[in-house]
Design a protein around this nucleic acid. Structure first.
Lengths: 111, 111
DNA sequence: TGCTGAATTGAAGAATTCTTCATATTGCTC
DNA sequence: GAGCAATATGAAGAATTCTTCAATTCAGCA
């Protein structure tokens, strides 16, 4: 398999590796939104949000259209929802696993 | 929604944001493998591979057991396969989209 | 015990990514 | 056109992550 493919996949995941960008994608799951609205829900400076939106745009995960005085963002493909769901599943498993581990440790300590 | 949750998700994706780590996960999709074998398939130094395996271990994406003289790695949860599949789907869409765009641009240039 | 192969760890400099601030662009509205 | 609100961009220092090299651990075996 070609090396650049792994690089592309890694780059892709890396663009998801930022809390603001994740938050944006999750908000856009419910439909398109203007920047102003995103800004209202994410506690971050406007210029910082713009930077993160630019990253998402460059990667092609979102698209933006100007509507009057504002810019409306939306998910480039609904497949992103599946990806986020898969990630949530894994995280849930992992946290559950840790919970069990914790329970075991506590039981052990109580002996 | 709690902020640390987004941080956790971002951290999670960030651990996937490295070509060697992606490669390892894809190799482990087919079943457990000793480090020596991974090393045979990925063109990288042993110590570098170890570093990346350590990252995957810390995040809980893989688990390792010692078997005699070697250490065998495996996926912590099969859900990871779904995640990689979802990512592949999105990447395919994106590349297809670019292909179409390229085709359009070429048609335009030929006018 | 001492050696060897397999894998990991620690640490330092290089490279990349983040955050922030200042400045620029764009389209309203007067 | 001037002023204003919304968004984007550029650039610099701070913070994080990568790569590499040397040193270490650990099991198995002579």
């Amino acid at each position: 398999m070609p090396v650049p493919l792994y690089q592309a996949k890694a780059d892709f995941f890396r663009t998801l590796g930022h809390p603001v960008r994740i938050r944006v994608l999750e908000l856009l799951r419910d439909g398109p939104r203007p920047v102003r609205e995103l800004l209202g829900e994410i506690e971050v400076e406007a210029s910082n949000l713009s930077q993160q939106l630019a990253v998402l745009r460059r990667t092609g995960l979102v698209s933006a259209v100007r509507e009057g005085g504002s810019v409306v963002y939306s998910l480039a493909t609904p497949d992103i929802v599946d990806l986020l769901a898969a990630a949530r599943r894994i995280l849930t498993d992992m946290i559950t696993g840790q919970g069990e581990l914790l329970a075991e440790l506590q039981a052990e300590a109580a002996e």
